[in-house]
């Protein structure tokens, strides 16, 4: 473990889809600057747990979370589950990458500009600097720098996933939630993304859902197993 300062604190988190409870009174501390893996059988609520950290569950029909979550964005732990906490601001600080690459139906450049536009950042030079920096962090700049105006959907699966990571990084999030980010990729792309995550943990706290124990051993600082709605630490 590289840092013992708490980045995310969870107290009594319950998660429901309709009447069905899938997370049961989860308590959790996630240290800053680490990669925390969440594994366990399918359908146990691993992805749902991630959506509690950026309150994305609020956009999912039938989902409901109760309990309290705090995140430290540099000014001490802030309770992000308070009703009046700015959810759009939260989601810019807590980025999320999904299992399947999900490019927006626009060019590579516009995909990268989109989160900045939402955040109200429009100064051209600053936008271009941030985009280049994020694409470099995602090890994608060299592959796309000459075709930024091409439709993003024409990229390969591995490139698309790195674009989605870069699109999240462009807002310089402090927490990165990754929902099986390598599940649909070939081994070469998997290796690139794992290297990228190891680079990123110096700047971000990463919470990653993964089914692959080899991958968890390679890059995660700790592994939490989710089963029957309860979280337990694995002895990896």
């Amino acid at each position: 473990m590289t840092n013992t300062k708490t980045k995310i604190k969870v107290d009594g988190l319950n998660f429901f889809y309709g009447a069905h409870q899938i997370l049961d009174a989860i308590d959790l501390d996630i240290p800053a600057g680490t990669i925390t893996a969440v594994s366990g059988p399918s359908g146990q609520g691993k992805s749902s747990l991630l959506t509690a950290f950026n309150r994305l569950w609020e956009n999912i029909d039938g989902a409901k979370a109760t309990g309290r979550i705090w995140i430290d964005f540099g000014k001490g732990l802030e309770e992000i589950t308070k009703k009046d906490y700015g959810v759009h601001h939260l989601r810019r600080k807590v980025g999320m990458v999904f299992q399947m690459p999900n490019p927006l139906p626009m060019s590579i450049l516009k995909n990268m500009q989109f989160p900045l536009k939402l955040a109200g950042i429009s100064e051209k030079n600053m936008v271009l600097e941030k985009i280049e920096s994020a694409l470099k962090q995602a090890h994608l700049w060299e592959e796309v720098k000459d075709r930024l105006s091409n439709d993003a959907r024409r990229l390969s699966g591995g490139q698309l996933q790195r674009l989605c990571i870069a699109r999240t990084l462009v807002l310089q999030p402090e927490v990165l939630l990754m929902d099986e980010p390598t599940a649909s990729l070939d081994p070469v792309s998997v290796e690139k993304i794992e290297t990228l995550l190891l680079d990123l943990k110096t700047r971000c706290t990463i919470v990653m859902v993964s089914h692959y124990m080899d991958q968890i051993r390679r890059i995660a600082d700790r592994n939490l197993v989710l089963s029957d709605g309860k979280l337990s630490a694995s002895s990896q």
Binding site: N54, L56, N59, I60, H88, H89, R91, R92, G95, M96, F98, Q99, M100, N102, L104, F114, P115, L118, A119, R167, T168, L171
Partner: peptide
């Protein structure tokens, strides 16, 4: 796809955006 609906909100977009 449900994931497509969550992409922009995950980046901080409002419902209208």
């Amino acid at each position: 796809p449900s994931q497509a609906r969550l992409t922009a909100p995950g980046l901080g977009a409002t419902r209208a955006q």
